[in-house]
Amino acid sequence: MRGYIAIIRNSLISYLFFRAEFFFRTLGNLLQIFIVFYLWKAIYENSTSELNGLTFLQAFTYLSVSGTIFVMIGTMIDWEISLNIMHGDIVMILYLPLDLHIQTIVRAFGVFIFRVLFSGLPAILFIILVFKVPVAFGINLLFFLVSVFFSFLISANIDFAIGASAFSFESALGLKLIKDSIILFFSGAIVPIPFFPKPVQSVIMILPFQSMYYTPVNLLLNRQSMLNSLLLLCIQAGWIIFFVILGRMFYRKILVKLTISGG
């Protein structure tokens, strides 16, 4: 456990190390929010109140909070692991007394905490205060945080699985790009789900991606019954387990290959 805490601490420090990085990340996120704002204001320009059952404020909040969640939960795990595999450094993991899967997720968690504290929450506060979004302050905030954490775990485990698959696929970078754009598109983080044609919507609801973005936003903005909230969290937990198992499968494959061929 202490080993893992050291990892979190180190990734936090190295994050603080680079001047201005934090500043530009925040600025970038703010700009993103403004772009979403103006783009959707233009989209709603000629309509009286609602498009596809969403008011402008609802659509904007939904998209800007999704965008912030994307910033918070994104990791570079897939990138790191596949680079390690390609350069052959992956043998090193056999020498460390830590589990690669847990270790990488924990390291990403350090970055995640940093982003939640310094980018995510300020950005969400900014959205709520500047654009006067009505939010209920209650137990739903707690649910929101838990849900974002679950989203992070889903995202990190997907990334781990993608990175680890580089071993058999010899191409995780291409895969990463595809994955990123698919997740963004089918999670409704670029265009809200109600805007999609009905058949596409039903496909989206089956996929895990909407649960990474739609669930936390839903928990933040809409009053839900306690039971309903817990149910949504359970679905997220289900997806976490699914991707953990997938990631472990690829990981086992790497270990077997490594111990046989020696890298």
Binding site: R9, L12, I13, L16, F17, R19
Partner: peptide, 10 residues
């Protein structure tokens, strides 16, 4: 050195 040092370096 350290976490606070990194902040001060900024």
């Amino acid at each position: 050195e350290g976490l606070w040092g990194a902040v001060k370096d900024l």
